[in-house]
Nucleic acid binder design. Structure first.
Lengths: 199, 199
DNA sequence: AACATGATGACAGCAACTGACATCAGTGGG
DNA sequence: CCCACTGATGTCAGTTGCTGTCATCATGTT
């Protein structure tokens, strides 16, 4: 609170702007500096110039702060699939969405690596990541159903798409990788087709 | 502790047997009766005639008690895949494991339904379920790699197998289902092949 | 009989999260 | 110009999940 108090009475608005963004930044910094478990919510709130209670007004829990922007990602997936030509096969529509998402990620490789290092170091964060991916999968399946795809094809296509995304993402952020995300998705998708082609 | 105290001095062993099993039973009962969040660890321990501290000696956390037996499941997956003929395609080996697991589950449909109702009612439990499935996927991928399958084919095959398992499982425990688990797996696997068959 | 072991209990403590109420700048009607 | 209202934040007390540490004590071993 100190910062707000110091700057107060100067004609500025009552609170420092973008509390949520400040909390996210502070959390990310601390998670990288000391690790997730070694960071308390009080630490985060203090660095952001806020209180613990306010943190929990902006984020459901200590993990959720790493998953801001998930809604936009899901929106991009869904709208891209919805816009695919009517005669596109389900997996083609999903593939188009994967490419759109890859384009969005491409300029943020370093940030993705840093964030993923934090997540990979903590099982609780991995759980949260998995349930977010499952949420994406459900949304994709629902969109496919809207396009007339029936079950279990819709869910299987969605889960396959998420698998391709997940595996391509891991390869994209690998330390020794120099390929583009979009290319890795194309490769993984092709590999999936080969693997499921048998008998 | 009351039960143990009452029965004490009668020539029985010092502690009631199978503390872990009693804790699991008590937890399951309470989760079904009042729901997961409405049940405290103290409640569980008391019903089992033990203390909270002892609960945490047997289970890493309040969720883990619903996932006892996960190791055996993974072992069944892995050993079945490892035993597949050398010339079996990766997805065929995984399919054989899925059938083996289905056979194991078949007699416990009611129990599976009850357990899944508890899990579906709580996001935290769904997270735990997802990370267990991810663990299975990793183990399967590792086994496939031992068989000479390279990446990303191994991981993609493993994740596809888990998708098929997951979707077939949901259909198997659906209230209106009368088919056998094994048959639903065969269907889902066929649907996966159709879905990924496109040019 | 002395000793080691292993499962449990007892107790203190931290940190995540929640509910209830207070504060107070900005806003808009009267 | 005042006043009621709103909304973001602060304050505080409380519950619960989970951990560290030490004590207890039947059992098995030597």
């Amino acid at each position: 609170m100190s910062v707000a108090v110091i700057l107060y009475h100067r004609g500025m608005s009552r609170w420092q702007p973008d509390a949520r963004g400040r909390l996210q930044l502070a959390a990310m910094e601390l998670y990288v500096e000391r690790g997730f478990e070694q960071t308390t919510v009080v630490d985060i709130a203090e660095r952001a110039g806020l209180t613990e209670r306010t943190f929990f007004r902006h984020f459901a829990d200590k993990r959720e702060v790493l998953f801001l922007g998930q809604d936009e990602l899901q929106e991009l997936f869904v709208s891209t699939i919805a816009q695919a030509p009517d005669d596109a096969a389900p997996l083609e529509a999903v593939a188009a969405a994967l490419q759109a998402v890859a384009t969005e990620f491409e300029p943020r490789r370093r940030w993705s690596q840093e964030r993923q290092r934090v997540i990979n170091a903590n099982p609780g964060l991995q759980e949260r990541e998995l349930i977010k991916l499952a949420g994406l999968s459900s949304a994709i399946a629902a969109t496919l159903r809207d396009r007339g795809v029936d079950e279990p094809a819709a869910s299987l296509t969605a889960e396959s798409g998420i698998s391709v995304f997940h595996i391509a993402f891991q390869r994209w952020i690998a330390a020794d990788n120099t390929r583009e995300f979009s290319q890795l998705i194309t490769q993984s998708l092709a590999a999936l087709k080969v693997v499921t082609a048998g008998g």
